[in-house]
Design a protein around this nucleic acid. Sequence first.
DNA 1: GTCTATAAACCGATAGAC
DNA 2: GTCTATCGGTTTATAGAC
Lengths: 197, 197
Amino acid sequence: MTQPQSDTRTRILELTAGLFAQLGFAAVSMRNIANAAGLTPAALYHHFSDKVALYDATLEHVYRSRTEALRSVLDTNGQFSADTLHEFVLAFTKIVAKDKVFSRLLHRELLDGSAKRMERLSAQVFHDTFTRFEALLKALAPGRDPHLTANAMIAVILGHYGFAPIRRSLPGYMKAHDRPDVLANQLVQLVLTGPKQ
Amino acid sequence: MTQPQSDTRTRILELTAGLFAQLGFAAVSMRNIANAAGLTPAALYHHFSDKVALYDATLEHVYRSRTEALRSVLDTNGQFSADTLHEFVLAFTKIVAKDKVFSRLLHRELLDGSAKRMERLSAQVFHDTFTRFEALLKALAPGRDPHLTANAMIAVILGHYGFAPIRRSLPGYMKAHDRPDVLANQLVQLVLTGPKQ
DNA sequence: GTCTATAAACCGATAGAC
DNA sequence: GTCTATCGGTTTATAGAC
């Protein structure tokens, strides 16, 4: 667990993260992966028992490497301040906006993940962070259902960037709408202070 | 265009809508489709020039058949009332919550659609409805950016049900959160009246 | 409009040498 | 740890009979 993994194994996982994120599980072949890695297909089977195991390891690798930044935002701060909420929303928005590999794999799992993989995504990526996020909202917006509100905020962020290719060709679009800070500001203001009258 | 299409063609499209929605383009083979339709693969090529053309026709078929309900909600009502907004949000939420074929194909297109297909999705499904939705919000919530607000509401609805498999195993989950009317109510209240103090 | 038959390429996976 | 070679099966798509 803690000893350094094989360099080749890690290199393969960095590669498959991009390939699976871009094309999806079914559209990427072991041959594609081997060629991109400068290996033969047979060599892949030394590191991973089959294609599904390689996909699982890819998710594990991406989840682990992408959620630390998020965890730390909610970890260091024990108090329930609006600043902490804003900081968290902005951090999550930035990750979703900029890390296409992570966000595309996440969306693919939401579509095609088995119940077991869904459970792992929930436990490994969302559970702890979501629980703290909920507690924060309960303290800062006591009139709302914290679960529903936390979910709605996550849904806005994920949906905003997932929907971006459509959004950009709809009337009223501005470049500023793509900026994480603009979205985060609107979102926090909406939940905490209500509409400008 | 207006003459009745071949029965077999339509029957194939109803079938592929479900298959492509469930498994995605790459994971469904022409054999799968032919077997499910009680045909041989060769027969499919009489109706569609290749697999991509069949997929395109499937999207066209689904878009056309699913967006009429939505269009009519915003069409009949020329006035800008909160009731119209609520009615529209509820109608869209119900479609997303209940029509898995439509919503899964939509999510798959957002992930894998080419620029051309994305443009078609925007024009065929969203453009007119979104424009009216924006105008409604401009009248009812004048303090907000209507484009950003309309997008956020659509993102919440799409994200809420797309995120559902994770949401259900997170603390604070209640069955009521899955109900379209509960989500629609919260969403309209959030945008129009701000938080309960 | 659907069939049989088949081409040509690709798929995941394994055996065994080095 | 990576290779060569290969197996058995599947893929999209076409030719041509009915």
